[in-house]
Design a protein around this nucleic acid. Sequence first.
DNA 1: CTTATGACCCTGA
DNA 2: GTCAGGGCCATAA
Length: 105
Amino acid sequence: MAISQQEFHDAVLFILGQIPKGKVTTYGKIAQLAGYPNHSRHVGKILSKLPSDTSIPWHRVINGQGRISFPEHSERYHVQKDKLEHEGISFLNGRINLKQIGWQP
DNA sequence: CTTATGACCCTGA
DNA sequence: GTCAGGGCCATAA
């Protein structure tokens, strides 16, 4: 029996729920914690399929460069940035200091 | 089967 | 610090 992708999906959602308010993490980190180190892209894929009314804090996920993985002109970028700033996370030149507010289990 | 795409990551220049 | 190249894996055509 092949590895269940449902497990990966659930693991990602569970990990997202563990991220404390005011902290952020990266796609690769989530994939790693879920047990699939090389599935960073799939994390984003899962998030892209989440409904807009979800209670999952998807906005606490950014890329390894400390940047939001959306073009600055896009609507999603501003939504995520607004949510993060609302939690007290500060942006410096469009970037987040992962050293400071990067979540570590 | 091969290509193309995607909310990515690591390394080297 | 930024940028480009290669790698990674699942899905769609």
